[in-house]
Simulated scan of single mutants.
Amino acid sequence: MEKLAELQNESDIRGIAIATKEYQANLTVEAVRKIARGIINWLCQSGIKEKITMGVGRDSRLSGQKLQETMIEELTVYGVDVYDFGLATTPALFMSTQFSQFSCDVGIMLTASHLPYYYNGIKIFSQKGGR
């Protein structure tokens, strides 16, 4: 059973997205589905009453495209309007919450920065900053 709390660190969510000989994957498609639902729940508890808008982007990691597709699919199932930013930078996803032409309630960036190829992560930005 996946333990999602183990994926969270101080500023974002990171885990093994590609299984290796040494590590079992824990940032899986199913984990991303649950995380997407958790983000929606968090927004609803934060008082957002209107339609939720999110931007989702990724870096060039091997696992990024599938995790991004999964995130977008899950968000849209729950009625979220999603901007698919495709390959993007972390600052671009933050700015999607700041620029009026997007007005995203949340920007989600799939990246694990400097970590090895088998990692991936989820950075979450709101209109108030990073989470």
Rank of each mutant, 00 (worst) to 15 (best):
E30H: 10
S96T: 08
K3V: 14
K66E: 11
A92F: 13
L87R: 12
I39Y: 13
E22W: 03
K34W: 01
K123V: 10
K21I: 06
L87P: 07
L43E: 14
F102P: 00
F125N: 04
S126N: 03
L75Y: 04
L110D: 03
Q24R: 13
Y23C: 09
F125C: 02
Q101F: 13
D84F: 15
F99I: 13
S60V: 07
M54T: 02
G38S: 13
V82E: 04
S103F: 00
M109N: 01
L27F: 14
I13M: 07
W42D: 03
H114A: 07
F85D: 03
L43W: 01
L115D: 04
E22H: 05
E2S: 13
E22I: 01
Y83A: 06
M109I: 13
N26T: 14
D81E: 12
Y23R: 13
H114W: 13
S63C: 04
Q68P: 01
F85Y: 10
E50A: 12
I72V: 09
G38M: 10
G55H: 03
N120R: 09
V77T: 15
T53D: 00
E50T: 15
L27P: 04
L4F: 09
M1Q: 10
I13C: 10
G15F: 07
N41A: 09
K66P: 00
F85E: 07
E10A: 15
G79L: 06
R131W: 09
I48F: 12
E30Y: 06
T90V: 09
M1C: 11
E73T: 12
M95L: 14
M95T: 04
E2P: 15
G15Q: 08
